[in-house]
Nucleic acid binder design. Sequence first.
DNA 1: CTGATTTCTGGAAGCGCTTCCATTATAGCA
DNA 2: TGCTATAATGGAAGCGCTTCCAGAAATCAG
Lengths: 358, 358
Amino acid sequence: MKLVKNVQDQRVSNLTLDDIARLAGVSRSTVSRVVNEHPSVKKDVRQRVLDIIEENHFHPNAAARTLAMQRSWTIGLILPHSVSTFFTDPYYPNLLMGIAKACNLYSYTLALFLVSTKEDEENVFPRVGRKGFLDGVIVQSGHHGDQGIIGRMIDQKIPLVVVGRPFRSDNVTYIDIDNISAVKSAVNYLCKTGCRKIATITGPIDSTVGIDRLEGYRQAIREQNGQVDESLVVEGNFTETGGFIAMQKLLPFKPDGVFAASDVMAVGAMRAVEEANLRVPEDISIIGFDDLPAASYGSNQLSTVRQNVPELGLRAVECLIEQIGDDSIAPHGVMMDTELIIRKSCFRLAPIDQTGVK
Amino acid sequence: MKLVKNVQDQRVSNLTLDDIARLAGVSRSTVSRVVNEHPSVKKDVRQRVLDIIEENHFHPNAAARTLAMQRSWTIGLILPHSVSTFFTDPYYPNLLMGIAKACNLYSYTLALFLVSTKEDEENVFPRVGRKGFLDGVIVQSGHHGDQGIIGRMIDQKIPLVVVGRPFRSDNVTYIDIDNISAVKSAVNYLCKTGCRKIATITGPIDSTVGIDRLEGYRQAIREQNGQVDESLVVEGNFTETGGFIAMQKLLPFKPDGVFAASDVMAVGAMRAVEEANLRVPEDISIIGFDDLPAASYGSNQLSTVRQNVPELGLRAVECLIEQIGDDSIAPHGVMMDTELIIRKSCFRLAPIDQTGVK
DNA sequence: CTGATTTCTGGAAGCGCTTCCATTATAGCA
DNA sequence: TGCTATAATGGAAGCGCTTCCAGAAATCAG
C-alpha cells in the first residue's frame, strides 16, 4: 500500500501561465493577453485558452503579476490610535464596511493596519511604505498624533487619502464631512424653534472634528446673536460621562438649547438634564451628532446630524483609486453633506419654515 | 525655468538591491544576505551595507521578495454575512482587533475581506485563492452558509483556521470557545443558588454557537434533573427584541432561572420580567453570555459568561502561522476557556461553595 | 496573383528578489 | 610554510508574469 498524491487535486491551483500555454498549444504571451483581455487575440484561440483556464481553475500568481506590472491592486487602511474607541464608537466599523465594500466593488484588496502604539507605528510603517505591496493608502485622521504617519506617507510619495480633516491639510488629499455647515444648520434650527440661549458641548479641541464643530457653533451664534458667550461652551471628550459632566457645568447658566458634538455626549447631557428635574425639549432642546441607532430608540429620541459613514468610506476609496491611476492629480479636499434629523429632543418646525420656501 | 526632479527625494524609496550593492561595493547576493540576516556575512561588510540601507531608507520590494520566496507574509481574514451585525455586535470589532494586533506582533500583514453577498463571495474568492498573495486564511464561521467558502479554501489547500466551530469540523482546523462547558457551568451555578426550574433562551439553532450553547444547557439539566422540559427551551435570535419575546413565552411556565445565550437577549428578557412585575433575581435569576459592557452597567448588572474575543483572534493567528510554517500539522480543534462572571442578576454563592473545596 | 497593410503570435527581456553553486579569501593546524 | 577546512563572496538561474519587438499569418487592393 502506498500513499499517492492525487494529481487531480494537485492540479487545482499551482499551474503557471506556461502550463496553460502548453495545454492550449500557444505561447505564454498569448495566454497572458487572454488573461488581460487584450483585443488582439483571435477569437477561437481566446476561447480555447479561456476554456483551459476555467477547466484548471487557473489564477495568475499575484506576486509575479504585481512585480511585472508594478501594481498590486491592494490598498492599505491605517486606523491610528483607535484601540479604545474601536468598538465603542460605531464610526470605525461603519467606515471599515464602506471601504471594504468599495474595495470589493472595484476589485481591490484591502490591507488593514490598526496602529495603537508608537511601537505599532514603527512596526507597521516599513510594511506600508515598501514598494510593491500597496498601490495607495487611506489614513483615518483628525488628531495631532496622526501627523507623523501622514507625513511619512507623503514623503514616500505613495497615493494617499486622509479621512477626516488633518491638522495640516495643505499638500494632502482628504475627505471629510462638512462639519462646520452641519453644525451651523443644527444651531440655526434650534434658534428658529425659539431657543435664545444655546450652549454647546464640544469634542476634544485637540481634534479637528472638535475644532470644526465648535467653529460651526461659533459661526451660527455670531450670525444670530452677534456674540458668543464663552460660558456656554464646555469641552467634552466624546464619552457619555463627559457629556453628563459638561451638562452639569452648563446648567447654572440656564441654557434653553444645547448642541452636543456627539450623540454619546448628548445622551449623557440628557441624563444630567433629567437628574436636574428639567425636561427635554420643554426646558432644554438638544441636538447631537452622528445618528447613533441607540440614541434614536426609547425615551431619548435624540435629534441629530446624520453622517453617512459608509458612503464616506466609499468616496475615500474612489478618490484614492483616481489618484493611483493619475499621479498628476493635485492634493485637494472633498466635503460631504450631512443631514439634520429632527426627533423629539427638540421642537419641530413646520416644514414651510424649515425649507424657507413659501 | 525648468522643473527638475529632486534627486534627494526621488531616492527615498525606489532603489533596488542592485543599487545598494553598487553603493556598498558588494554583490547583490551579499546585500540580500544582509537584509535577511544570514550569518555568513563579514561583520564590517554587514555594517557598511546596513548603513547604506538605512541612509537611503531602502526596503526590499515586497512583490519581488514574495515571488522569490513563495511567501507573502500576509494573511487573509474573511468575515462572511456580517453586514448587519458587524457594528451592532462588538464581537467582530473585538475579533478584528485581536487579529490585527497579533499580525503586528508577528509582522504579518492583514488583508480583510467582508463578504456579505453571494456576489461578494464570487468576487472575493479569486483574490483569496490565487497563489502568491496570501500565506493563509482565517475564516469566521458558524453558519451553514459559510460551508461553501470553507470548502473552497480546503480545496485550494491553503492554510486555514476557522474561528467558531464550523458545521463540518472534521478536516479543518478551527478555534472556538468551549461553549458547552461554559454554559454547563452557568446553568450549574443557577442550580446551586437554588433555582429549580431553569429555562433557556437559545441562539438561532442553525448556527453552531446556538446549537452548542443549547447542548450545554441540556447536558447540565440532565445531570441535575435527569430530564429536559422542552417547554423551557425557546429559540431566540441574538437580538434584544428576540430575548424579550422569548421571555414572554417562557413566563407562563414560571421558571425561576434563565440562561440566555447572549447578553443582548438577556437584556430583552430582563425587560420582559420587569414588565411582568417580577424581580431579578428575587423571582427569576438570569445569566447571559458575552459580557457586553452595556449589560454590566446601571440597573442591569447582568451575570454572564465572558469570552475573551481578542485573545481568540490572537490564538487564531498563532494557529495559522504554525500551519504556514509546517504543512504536516493535521487539522484539529482548539477550545478556549471562558469565565463565569457573577453580578446582581443572580444570587451569589459563598466562595466556599463555588469552588466546591472545603 | 502579387505586394502592401493589417492582424496575430512567439521570443526574449525584464520586473527585483532569493539561493544554489562555485570560487576565492581567511583561518587553522601540523 | 604548506595544506586542508572553513568562511565569505560573486555569478547565475529562477520565481511567474507582462510587454516590446519582430516576424508570421491573414486580409485586402489592384
